[in-house]
Every structure is written in structure tokens, then in C-alpha cells.
Computed example of a mutant assay.
Amino acid sequence: MSSPREPLASVIKRHGLDARKALGQHFLLDPGVTERIAQLAGSLKGRHVVEVGPGPGGLTRALLDSDAASVLAVEVDTRAVAVISELAEEAPDRLRLIEADATAVDLAELCPAPRHIVANLPYNVATPLLIGWLRQAAQWERLTLMFQLEVAERICAAPDSEHYGRLAVISQWCADCAQVMRLPPGAFSPPPKVWSAVVSVTPRPEQPSSELFSAMERVTAAAFGQRRKMLRGSLKSVGGEHLLSAAEIEGTRRAETLSVEEFDRLARALLAKR
């Protein structure tokens, strides 16, 4: 029988791992919470899991206690690297550590399939990380990710609602997205100023080409960049009336009223025009 693990608070103190605002760090220390997040990822049996920003390793421990075939921890903070290195010594066959900036590496290349991502993401890079992973959504079976609540709401928002915008369109275009857990500030150390939420992102079987993805980025940037304007005005920079006619969408409508499927038609029309 293995000996009990050192409490995370003690690990943090021993390594001088105070959370740094510049790195967007807010640590989860409650093992009940981290275990629940690992469970929300679904069955991990035979799956290879990537965790970004493990910090003191609370979620890492929960993933190691799951049925996951392996865990790849990606950490940029040298202090946290030392902590996760100790965990890797306990499970050398299942836990691998890479010291790197997750925004600058292709994680799918580093991890065998079938792949999951399960992470309490650093808040300051969470959105660009998600967009990068959606670009290669076909490589991932599921992503279970912690965001600030406002970002989670933007990912899952319905058309014509307060939070509906580019992030909702691109996320829901590539995947089924759902909020599956909310956490108050007090669940973290140190507490952030806002609530947080876990979002389950399950990529669709059919994924857009990289060219079509880029077209969608251009269309949504134009449409939501001037959301008070009617589409015939906001889309002028990408083809305006021609695009709207090809997609059979009224130019008097505004971006927030369009469904994801209608944005798909606009993106395809833009790609065909090129």
C-alpha cells in the first residue's frame, strides 16, 4: 500500500509556490473538487490525458488516480516543474512532464491518441489555448477545461443572448459545448475575483479544413467587430452584399441574431469567393 501523499498546502510552502498573477495562477487544493473534475471528463480508461498548468499538482493527482493510460503535464513555471517532477518519480510509467509554454507547442504531437485535455487553465491564456485546440479539434476526443465563468458563458452562449459572440460561434461550430460545473472564488487559492466554470468540449466528427477555419475567423471578426451595425455594413471588409447573397442571409440583420449554421454558410461563401 502506497504512503499518503503530502498535503498540497505543505508542498506549496516547501517549494515557495505562491500563485503569481502574471501567470494567471489560481490553485485548486480540495481533493474532492479535483476528483470531481477528473470524473467530469468521462471514462479515461485507455486515454492519454494532457494537463496544462498543473501548478502544485492537485488535479494531476486526481488524474493519476483515474483510469487514464498516461498523463502529460505541461508547465511553464519552474517552481511548479519541481513539484510535478516529484509526482513523476512516484509514477514514472504514467506521468510525463514537459517544461514549456502550452501556447507555443503542438500538444497533439506530444501525446498519443486517443487524447483528452483536462485542465484548470491559467486564466490569462485560456481563450487563445482553446482557439488553438479547436483549430485541431479532430485530434482530441474531449476537452474538460476550467475557465472564468464569463468566458465559459461566452463559449456556451446561444444566439441573440448577452454573451453570444465570436467565441461561441467558433466553439460550437467545432464542438458540442456545455457547462458542467461552477465553482465559487473560495474554491481556489488565492481566490480569484470571479466565479469559475468547467466546460466540456466534445469535438464533432466532421471538422473544417484549416482554410475554412480561417475564413470563419475572418467572418466572425468582421461581424462582431461592429456588432451594432447591420451585417451589410459590418461585413463590407470581407465581401458584404455578395457574401450575404451567397449565404442567403438578409443584410439588415445583426451578427448576434445569426445561428452557427448561418455563420458556417458565410464562411463557406467567403472561402468560395477566394
Rank of each mutant, 00 (worst) to 15 (best):
D93N: 14
D93K: 15
I98T: 12
I98A: 12
E99Y: 04
E99M: 12
A100D: 01
A100G: 03
D101P: 12
V105Q: 00
L107N: 10
L107Q: 06
A108V: 05
C111N: 09
P112K: 01
P114I: 01
V118F: 05
A119N: 04
N120Q: 02
L121N: 11
L121F: 08
Y123S: 02
N124K: 05
V125R: 14
V125P: 15
A126W: 05
L134W: 04
L134M: 06
R135K: 15
A137P: 09
A138D: 14
E141T: 15
T144H: 07
L145T: 02
M146I: 09
M146F: 04
F147L: 12
F147R: 13
L149V: 07
E150P: 14
E150A: 11
E150C: 12
V151C: 00
E153V: 07
R154C: 04
A157S: 06
A158W: 06
E162F: 05
E162S: 10
G165E: 02
A168C: 02
D176L: 10
V180L: 06
V180K: 09
M181Y: 09
R182F: 04
L183M: 15
P184M: 07
P185Y: 01
G186K: 13
A187D: 01
S189Q: 12
P192L: 06
P192I: 09
K193E: 11
V194W: 05
S196M: 07
V201H: 02
T202P: 08
T202Y: 03
T202S: 13
E206D: 14
Q207N: 10
P208M: 08
S209C: 06
E211C: 11
L212V: 08
F213G: 10
S214A: 15
A215K: 09
A215Y: 03
M216R: 00
M216Q: 06
E217H: 11
R218G: 04
V219C: 13
V219P: 12
A223T: 13
A223Y: 10
R228T: 07
